[in-house]
Nucleic acid binder design. Structure first.
Lengths: 146, 146
DNA sequence: GTACGTGCAAAAAATTTGCAACCAA
DNA sequence: TTGGTTGCAAATTTTTTGCACGTAC
């Protein structure tokens, strides 16, 4: 697993530290969401996350708002799997750059840890763009579905 | 330009042939949409396409329905730029595999014609997935916006 | 105490669907 | 003729926003 070098508790406290460093309050909603994001390896859709936290009285609108904030401070990464639903996964110190393979049928994803795309970013740089990032996803049909 | 090896007319008639080969009718809405998709290099959002064809009495729902059909026969490619809006670009014989750089601010895109990612697909293949495709987009800020 | 955040409800944006009329083959 | 398509309207789905209240610091 990508994030096994740190325990759940480590990642959570690091995440909370990032929140506080950004002058963001440690509210129950945010803590619950972070716990959900860290406990299982995402990416999760907003709806999936809401399912996990709504019994703690966390509203769907709050989920949207928290995820937006989390993304702005780099706590989560937004992923788009081409189906019109935004997904988020936790991002922390020991979670390195990676991509996903998404099953075209069940929509489950698996990590792809290799990435040779940095070189291509040079090309983009030479076209005059700055602050370049890239987004790479693989689509296929997993064994269970085929 | 990517598709300059064929003229507008060539690409349009090829596209219409694909439609007919798939037993899909050559309706005015579909022709107008294809013309819009071919005339300028996309990708276009559904809304942008609708703006281009609505004076021809093509309804927004029809745009959605046509694009879904076009995608299912490989006439267009769906692109997600991570902003929750689906975009489509024409795909035809002489339009080769490519990616985009998307400006984080104006959302305009430019083609990236190099792709070395095929090798990575081998890795995905070895994980038991079939019918693998990949999706790669670059994000950055273009000169005009920075 | 004072912002910042939240719940709730309503609005907005994006997409899908039902159905009668239309039209391409 | 006739079944695939469309326009229109309504319904869903996804996301955002306004506002008064709650709460972290």
């Amino acid at each position: 697993m990508t994030q096994s070098s740190q325990t759940f508790t480590d990642v959570l406290s690091d995440s909370l530290a990032i929140l506080q460093a950004a002058s963001l309050r440690k509210t129950q909603s945010r803590v619950e969401l972070l716990k959900a994001l860290i406990a299982q390896h995402g990416p999760f859709s907003v709806e999936e996350l809401h399912q996990q936290v709504k019994f703690k009285k966390v509203d769907l609108a709050t989920v949207y708002r928290c995820l937006t904030v989390f993304e702005s401070v780099g706590l989560v990464k937004r992923c788009d799997f081409g189906d019109g639903v935004a997904r988020y996964e936790i991002h922390h110190g020991s979670s390195h750059h990676h991509h996903h393979v998404i099953c075209k049928i069940c929509r489950k994803s698996e990590n792809i840890d290799d990435c040779e795309v940095q070189r291509l970013e040079q090309l983009v740089l030479s076209k005059g763009y700055s602050q370049i990032t890239h987004y790479l996803e693989f689509f296929g049909i997993c064994q269970k579905c085929s």
